[in-house]
């Protein structure tokens, strides 16, 4: 998941002298001010922080306000979507003109009609608008669907993303994964087919945004081996 990473940062936090009696609280407050804003220094949006070590010595800046420079090491969880990388999000609104997506529950993304590949057509089903694929009837995007899309641009101030569904490997995550599975494991039994997609979804959610065929095959083989071990 290249758009979500953990960075180790060496930071110096400048504390106002009035907060000198509660430095750790002031440090956390300063770090909290970074949350959900794009920071050029760390090159991403800080989603969480974890202070590893706090220097017990602080340098006092000369000046009218003698700020305290406190050095610390922290792990920062960063959200840094780059153009032409894949992102995943949940569809919250769908119209003929656009698909609105929310990524990780905080960042808004929009995919306009011109960025949706022609394979998809907007239909109204049961009073709800959906985008359905012409070639694969089961490939449907509707409100609530988790989709994978390509980043076109990212507004760092508003954290607004423009996305695209032009590439073939974009669309409903559920369908994409299932489709890959059907292609590579056509001989599996019906029962296993029902169980495996869930497993893959979980692994994929936890590990990476984009799983190759090889990865899935490897994981399935491992699972099979594990099962044999348990049986024996």
């Amino acid at each position: 998941m290249e758009w979500l990473k953990v960075s180790k940062a060496n930071l110096t936090v400048y504390i106002h002298p009035s907060k000198s009696n509660q430095v750790s609280k002031a440090v956390l407050r300063e770090l909290s001010s970074l949350l959900f804003t794009f920071s050029e220094i760390v090159g991403g949006v800080v989603l969480a922080y974890d202070v590893n070590s706090l220097d017990t010595c602080a340098k006092i800046l000369p000046g009218v306000h003698p700020y305290l420079g406190v050095k610390l090491k922290a792990n920062l969880l960063l959200f840094c979507p780059k153009p032409n990388t894949l992102l995943e999000g949940k569809v919250v609104k769908l119209t003929q003109e656009s698909i609105h997506v929310v990524v990780l529950g905080f960042s808004a993304a929009i995919i306009t009609e011109k960025d949706i590949r022609e394979e998809f057509v907007c239909k109204t089903k049961k009073g709800q608008e959906v985008y359905a694929s012409r070639s694969n009837k089961r490939h449907v995007i509707k409100v609530g669907t988790m989709i994978r899309f390509l980043v076109k641009s990212f507004d760092e101030e508003i954290l607004h993303i423009c996305g695209s569904l032009i590439p073939d490997h974009t669309g409903s995550i559920y369908w994409l994964d299932k489709n890959l599975e059907v292609v590579s494991h056509a001989d599996r039994s019906e029962k296993k087919k029902r169980i495996e997609p869930e497993r893959i979804m979980l692994e994929q959610g936890a590990v990476d945004g984009e799983l190759s065929n090889l990865d899935i095959v490897q994981k399935r083989t491992n699972a099979k081996r594990q099962k044999h071990w348990e049986e024996s």
């Binding site: 959900f36 919250v92 609104k93 609105h100 929310v102 529950g105 905080f106 960042s107 808004a108 508003i158 954290l159 607004h160």
Partner: peptide
Amino acid sequence: ADLVPLAPLR
């Protein structure tokens, strides 16, 4: 706010 989750902050 549903479409742009950070809108309430603005």
